[in-house]
Structures are given as C-alpha cells and as structure tokens.
C-alpha cells in the first residue's frame, strides 16, 4: 500500500513540476525578452511586474470558442494538441533531479527519453495534416523535414555521452560524469542543445511556424484551449530539453561541492542549471533571426551531423584508450 502511495506521490510531484516549470519559463521569456529589447514586458497582471500574465492568458484561452474547421479531420485535429503535449510529461517522469528525486528510474532512460521526445513533433504533423489548410500543411511538412534532419545529430550526441558513461541510465550518467567532461563532451553538448532547440521549433529554428510567411504553420487553425496546449507544449519542451542537457552534459545534481549531497541541494543544482539553460534558449531567440529553410537543413546535415559523428569517434577513442 505504501509503495502505491509513493508512486502516486511521485507522479503528483512530476505533474506539479510539469504544470509550473513551463509557466515559469514562459514568464521569464516575457520579461527577459522585454528587457533585451529595451522594453519592460508585462507589468499589470497580478499587480507586481505582471507575474500573473500567463495565468491571465490561460483564463483568456479557456474562454475562447473551440473551433474545428468544417473540412478538418475532426478526430485527428482534436487529438493533435494532446499528442504534442503528453510526451513531454512522460519524459519528465524519467528525468532525475537528484539521486532520490526521480519519477521513475529506468535502466534505458536515455533511450526512452529520446524515443518519446520524438513523438512530440508528431503532434504538429497531425495538426498540420488535419487542419485542411495549405499553410498548416506546409508548416507540418517543414516540421517533418526538421525532425528528420535534427533527430540524427540529437541522437548521435546522446549516444556519445552514453558511451562515455558506459550506461543508458540517466542517473547512471550523472553518477559517472566528471567535471572534465565539460570540455571533452563540449561539441556533443552543443550539438545536443542546438538540435533539441530545432526539434522544439524554437527561434531561430522556427521555420515551421514562420508567422511572416505561413501564418502560424501547423497551429494556424487552432483556437482557445487547444492552441494554449500547443503553447504549453513548447514551453514544456524547453524545460525537458534543458533538464536533459543538464542531466546528460552538465552533471545534473552535482555541484562543485560534492559533500553537500542531502538531496535538496542536488535538486537546487539541477533546477539552477536547467533555468540557466532556459535563459540561453530565450537569449538565442532574441538575438538571432530565423534561419531560412535551406540554411536550416544545411546546418543540420553539413554542420551538426559531422560534428556529432566526430564527437562520437573521439568518445570512442578515449573510452577504449582509458
């Protein structure tokens, strides 16, 4: 009975994190983006520096009419936001934030996580196809092309760190991690992060939703709560990507002082690293213009894939040699 209770408690905590962390990132994006553009961002909602802006947005979305286009494939259209959002919740279950704090420890965690993250893109593909709108279709196809291009370097970079640690378990990778890996695995980390950004379709890799040419890509026909779910999926994706990068490449819960391992400090380390990476995600969005479709593909196939392969070879050599 107590075992069941523990499982339920863990899942509730994961759900709570899933519902709050993306909102924190979203709010941070509002404010950071504002200040980087010499604005102040939201200031009214909630009274103090617009802290309740996303809550207000949520209320607004909930009030809107839920429209399904007449020509749309109704079932697929309605299912798509869930398919986009749920995978990130599932991934969050497997990510360890400290030695004790993990939703569910998996032996092949990294395998599971990458497999499930790929499903998220399926949501925008379904949305693009089911909307019966040419812009949605173009957006969906761009999503597919982007997924194909960037899944490979994403996977290769993850494979490199798994090889270095000699385990597929996420907790195992953090335990095996050593500070000098920061330099050794740096190309892999960069490839992983950039490819992950591209899979999330975050600017500067937001060609699938390029609003100046295809309105809002696959999400053009969505309104109300379903649209809000897509937005939430984007921010949940940021949290998941940053947490994964933290766990795989930045030593997860391990700070510079290894003695302070009470569980809670470890948790704080993971969160701090995750949010630092989330800041970088926002920063990149503000600093760089959108990549054109051909530039996007070239970056993946001519830049990231060779880099990831090189990293893989280097990791292999070092692992065999030592």
């Amino acid at each position: 009975m107590s075992e069941l209770l523990e499982v339920v408690l863990r899942l509730v905590l994961v759900l709570a994190a899933f519902l709050t962390l993306p909102l924190l990132v979203g709010q941070a994006e509002h404010k950071v983006m504002g200040h980087m553009q010499s604005r102040v961002g939201p200031m009214y909602a909630g009274g103090f520096h617009g802290w309740a802006q996303l809550v207000a947005d949520g209320v607004k979305f909930a009030q809107k009419e839920d429209i399904v286009p007449a020509a749309a494939d109704r079932a697929v259209f309605k299912l798509a936001p869930a398919v986009a959002l749920i995978p990130y919740l599932v991934v969050l279950v497997a990510i360890p934030v400290s030695p004790d704090w993990v939703g569910q420890e998996l032996d092949a965690g990294i395998f599971f996580v990458i497999a499930v993250m790929g499903i998220g893109v399926l949501g925008s593909l379904m949305a693009g196809w089911a909307s019966a709108n040419k812009y949605s279709l173009i957006g969906g196809l761009r999503s597919a092309a982007q997924l194909l291009a960037y899944e490979l370097p994403f996977l290769l970079a993850a494979a490199s760190i798994a090889m270095a640690a000699g385990t597929l378990s996420l907790s195992g990778i953090v335990v095996a991690w050593e500070p000098w890996w920061l330099i050794w695995q740096l190309p892999g980390a960069v490839v992983f992060f950039v490819a992950g950004l591209a899979e999330l379709q975050r600017p500067p890799f937001d060609m699938p939703v390029a609003d100046s040419e295809i309105i809002f890509g696959a999400y053009t026909e969505y309104t109300g709560l379903r649209f809000a779910l897509f937005l939430l999926a984007e921010y949940a994706g940021i949290v998941v990507l940053c947490a994964l990068t933290t766990v795989l490449f930045l030593g997860g819960w391990r700070g510079p002082f290894d003695d302070a391992l009470f569980g809670i400090p470890g948790l704080l380390w993971t969160l701090a690293k995750t949010f630092a990476l989330a800041f970088v995600v926002i920063w990149l969005r503000v600093a760089y213009p959108r990549l054109r479709e051909d530039q996007l593909q070239r970056l993946a196939w001519q830049g990231l894939v060779p880099l990831a392969l090189g990293q893989l070879a280097l990791t292999g050599v070092v692992v065999v040699a030592t």
Binding site: V32, H35, M36, S38, R39, W283, L284, A287, Y288
Partner: peptide
C-alpha cells in the same frame, strides 16, 4: 558575428528600458 549578437542583447538587458509607463 554570433557572439556579437548575443553581447548586444545581453547589454541591452542590463540597461534601463526606455518604456514610459504612460
């Protein structure tokens, strides 16, 4: 060029916003 872009945005974040709370 990429680094310069990042530096510009970070510098701007450090400066006071030009917004007037009309």
């Amino acid at each position: 060029g990429l680094a310069k872009g990042l530096a510009v945005t970070l510098n701007t974040m450090g400066r006071r916003a030009v917004t007037q709370q009309y």
